[in-house]
Structures are given as C-alpha cells and as structure tokens.
Design a protein around this nucleic acid. Structure first.
Lengths: 110, 110
DNA sequence: TCTGTTAATCGTAATATTGCAATAAACAAA
DNA sequence: TTTGTTTATTGCAATATTACGATTAACAGA
C-alpha cells in the first residue's frame, strides 16, 4: 500500500523512523555533510556541488527543513542554509540511543 | 522518478543512506528493538507482537537480513532470528560518525 | 519600470515501498 | 502418507518517493 501503519507503533519508534527516512537518500546525506563542512551557510551552490537539478535540491532542502535539521535564511535573491544545531543535537540523542541499545546476553543465539 | 541517482554520490554516502533507509520504517525499528530485548531469538512471535500480517513481517525481516543486521536460523518448522552483532557494530560506527560530525564554527550562521 | 538572478512551487512521469490474500515450501508428528 | 504448523514467495493494489521541465515569486540593479 505504500502507507506505513504508524498508529500501531510508539511515538519513539515513529520518531526514529522519520529521522532515519530523511537520511535515507544520499543527496540529503550529501547536503548535510556539505553544510557541516562549509559552515559559512551555503545556499544554491548545493545545486552545482551535488549535480542534481535545482528543483530537486530545493525539494530535499524542504524535507530537511521540515524536520528542523536545517534553517534557511533569505539574503537578497539567494537563500542561505545551515544546520540547526539544537535540533541536530536532539535528533542525535534519539538516534544514538537506538544505535547503542545492547543485548543483555553477549552471545549470538543462532 | 522514484529512482535515486546513486552514481553521483560517494560509497559512504550511499552506505549511510542504505542503513538509514532500513531504519526508516517503524515496523523494522520495532523488530530490532524486540530482538535486542528478547535475546532468546524470537521467531514468528514478531507477528503477534507487532500486529502486521505475517507476509508483511516476513518481508521486513528479509530486508533486515539482506543488510546483514540480523541472522535467521531454521529450527524445525519455525525460524529463529537474532541480531548480527558484528555487523550491527560496523553499522553503528558508520552511522555514529555521520551523526557526530561537528561544525568548525560553533555559531549558527543564519 | 524593465531585466536578470535565485529559489520555490506545480505538474507529471517513472520507480519504489508497503501491505496483504493466496499460495507454496518445509518440516514434525500422527 | 496425511495433517497441521510455520515461514517464504507471488501477485497484486494503493500510496510514496524521486527527478525535472516549466513556471512563478521575490528581489537587486540598471
């Protein structure tokens, strides 16, 4: 159906899935890495840097912004994006806890 | 197009995206959490535990297995699944490095 | 005002994902 | 061998995602 049955899962499970989903495309991974590297708020150079069409990049930026991981600031005709550090930290906490869960028994059972 | 242009990204970016994608559905998050909790290799109780149809769970398990995050072991008529600890550790390293990247400048630029 | 620049939005095509009913496969026990 | 149990596979239908051309919006400078 293409439609996840979110109502049968906990808020945390859905939150983890939402964060993971936004990282589930290499273009968005690349955008984020670039924003971390070039901390002087890159705008539409991302289009050249990444090589996808402008509407496509704009769409990926929208998703990242929607989850709060980046901020956009209009500066004249161009828009300046950067990491939302507070929200990134909060996301990192949730995801790290998920990744760091550990087995009580150290031995594989199969 | 629904088709990601993976060839324009680095292997690492694609790897991160693949791992993230598999965590991008709450059912798979839930399955993994359950396997961590019940380390005595649960099999098809997952169907009852989670509440999706058996073919659906089977499909999610297949994806987790395909990425190497879980192992399956046939035991009579039932199949016993558990976390593949080595691969989980390797995945955790990749994802943690991505999450822990930091800005050289501490101040938001916009 | 007109022109150029930049980014967002709209519309659409191609592909992927999710979910499940129906079925098959694999095995244990009678 | 037959029967029941468990899991995988097949074949769909519904929805989501990805990508981009065309267009629009917003602004700066001439």
């Amino acid at each position: 159906m293409g439609l996840a049955k979110t109502e049968m899962f906990t808020d945390l499970q859905n939150e983890i899935a939402l964060f993971a989903k936004v990282f589930g495309h290499p273009a968005r991974v690349s955008i984020l890495q670039h924003l971390f590297k070039i901390n002087t708020c890159v705008c539409g150079d991302l289009v050249e840097e990444i090589g996808l069409a402008q509407p496509t990049i704009s769409q990926h930026l929208k998703e990242l912004k929607h989850l709060g991981l980046i901020k956009g600031n209009v500066e004249g005709t161009s828009v300046c994006y950067c990491i939302n550090q507070d929200n990134w930290k909060a996301m990192k906490k949730v995801m790290t806890e998920f990744l760091n869960q550990d087995l009580t028994q150290k031995q594989d059972c199969c």
